[in-house]
């Protein structure tokens, strides 16, 4: 199961460093600047949906994902996963980080094994680790260290580590950042195929409009900070998607570009 309910979530960061401290300054100055990041987010994701969260950079996409995954607490509001309140990070919701979250002092094998560390049977665990390395095409690279791999291979290794843990929800925070164009296209395809195979809820954060429209079952578009939900689209086009084959998709694409303040799709 991987049903997510986000109810009126607000998040404020307090910027204390810039605030001057004087005896008689007003209370707001004394406590620092409040920086609202999320401004009342209400969302519901069904089990098994591939949700793409889109928005201008710095708008609070990552903050929302971190709140849902339990890394940050919301200032107000609640997040429920399968009806249970999120209290903190857990191996039921694994986060794939924007910059590599692989441990550089462990080999690919040791990193992926972290996802299967709850398993008691050694052989069963090894089989499972190997199976997931095969899925992401890293067979033969098990005993290399992350810094010996290319950027795309590192992402795939991190993906394998997340999948081995068999989480209810998978968070991906711009996992393709820093990859070259072709690798990026390939990784999109791999994620889509993988999602069809495992049918888990995936929250995928990106600032690439085409990427979101090509991949998502659901596309949520955020406003500038403080973030509100601007568009919430359900896409029921089959994969692989092509903007030329679906006029409706092309129209949506133009809408999203316009919503985000660019009046033509480049």
């Amino acid at each position: 199961m991987g049903h997510i309910l986000v109810k009126d979530v607000r998040k404020e960061y307090v910027e204390r460093r810039g605030a001057r401290r004087r005896m008689n300054s007003d209370p707001d100055l004394r406590s620092g600047n409040h920086l609202p990041v999320l401004d009342g987010i209400d969302l519901e994701f069904a089990n098994g949906e591939l949700v793409c969260i889109l928005g201008p950079s710095g708008c609070g996409k990552t903050t929302l994902a971190r709140v849902i995954a339990g890394f940050d607490r919301p200032t107000s509001g609640t997040v429920l996963i399968d009806g249970e309140k999120v209290k903190g990070p857990s191996s039921e919701h694994i986060f794939v980080f924007q910059h590599s979250g692989l441990f550089p002092w462990m080999t690919v094998w040791e990193n992926v094994r972290l996802g299967a560390r709850h398993m008691k049977e050694k052989e069963e665990m090894a089989a499972k680790v190997q199976e997931h390395l095969d899925v992401v095409n890293l067979t033969g690279y098990e005993h290399l260290y992350p810094h010996q791999l290319s950027g795309g291979m590192q992402r795939r290794a991190e993906l394998a580590r997340a999948l081995v843990a068999d989480p209810e929800v998978l968070f991906m925070d711009e996992p393709f950042a820093g990859l070259d164009f072709l690798t990026r296209l390939k990784m999109r395809e791999e994620i889509i195929n993988m999602h069809e195979l495992i049918q888990k809820t995936i929250v995928f954060i990106t600032h690439d409009i085409d990427e979101a429209l090509v991949m998502g079952d659901r596309v949520v578009v955020f406003t500038e900070r403080p973030a509100k939900v601007r568009l919430d689209l359900k896409l029921e086009f089959p994969h692989p998607r092509d903007f030329h084959s679906y006029d409706e998709l092309e129209r949506l694409r133009r809408d999203v570009y316009t919503e985000l303040g660019v009046h033509y799709a480049l």
Binding site: F71, S91, F95, F97, H99, G101, W105, M106, L114, H118
Partner: peptide, 26 residues
Amino acid sequence: VYFQVAANFNFTPFETITRVIFPAIL
């Protein structure tokens, strides 16, 4: 990020020291 990964995979404080902090500072 390394501490977040450790939290994500339910590391105990002892494991965080031996498997994250120690190798990270070596």
